[in-house]
Each structure stands twice: as C-alpha cells, then as structure tokens.
C-alpha cells in the first residue's frame, strides 16, 4: 500500500449500452472533486470509452466524449488499459486517446495492489 487514500476506478462497460460508464465516471469525478487522487483503468468493453473519434452519443443519450475530455480538469490524468483487453476487443492502440497508458499482463496485479481503494463498474 502506498498512498493512503488513492482510488482506482475500473470501467468495464461500454458507453450507452448501460449507465455503468457514466455512473462510474461520476464516482471518479466526485472523489477527484474532494481532492482524492484518482486513476482510471479501462478493461473489456470499457475501452470503447477511450476511442478518440467518438460521435455525439447514441440517440437520446448524452455523449461520453465531453466527460472523458473533462477528466483532466478534475486532475484525473492517468487513464490505463491493459494489452490483453485491447487485443481481446480488437481496438488498435492508434485509435485511443493520447493520454492512455498500457499495462502489460504481468504488471496488472501489482498495479492494482498500489491502490488503497478500488471501485469496479
């Protein structure tokens, strides 16, 4: 355990098909607004939120891109994903936002151990 109050929010669900992405990001934003250090890890379908060429949102739903863009204003600067998840979903890393960092398979568990709090969406 390093930082005593740092939070990892894991996002595993795609924009629009459920509200988990939005509600997961809300949790991250509220923690950050209170000054808690927050990192985000995107796995599986959650990677769809990292695509830089997202459109204006599914019909009738607010787009997720503005919220993704807003994260840095809340000092959430570290967006992580894993090589294995990227390969599984078939997204080329060139399609991702600029500030996404890749975790190698053997690094995943040590990465998660660094956080004193984890929320999984």
């Amino acid at each position: 355990m390093t930082d005593s109050e740092n939070l990892l929010v894991i996002i595993r669900h795609a924009p629009y098909s459920s509200n988990l992405l939005r509600e997961g990001l809300d949790a991250a934003l509220v923690a950050a607004a209170f000054g808690q250090p927050v990192d985000l890890l995107f796995l599986g379908q959650g990677i769809m939120a990292l695509l830089k060429e997202q459109g204006s949102g599914a019909p009738g739903q607010k787009a997720s891109l503005p919220t993704m863009d807003m994260l840095e204003m809340y000092d959430i600067e570290n967006l992580w994903t894993s090589e294995a998840s990227l390969a599984a979903i078939g997204v080329p890393s060139a399609a991702l936002r600029d500030n996404v960092r890749l975790l190698e398979p053997e690094a995943m568990s040590a990465f998660m151990q660094q956080y004193s709090h984890i929320l999984n969406f």
């Binding site: 109050e5 939070l7 809300d26 949790a27 509220v30 209170f34 709090h117």
Partner: peptide, 11 residues
C-alpha cells in the same frame, strides 16, 4: 444522498 457519501463510507 450524494455520491460523496459512498466515498466517505469507503474511507
């Protein structure tokens, strides 16, 4: 209540 309550509970 607000989401802040969840983070407080967690801490």
């Amino acid at each position: 209540t607000g989401l802040g309550q969840l983070l407080t509970l967690q801490k």
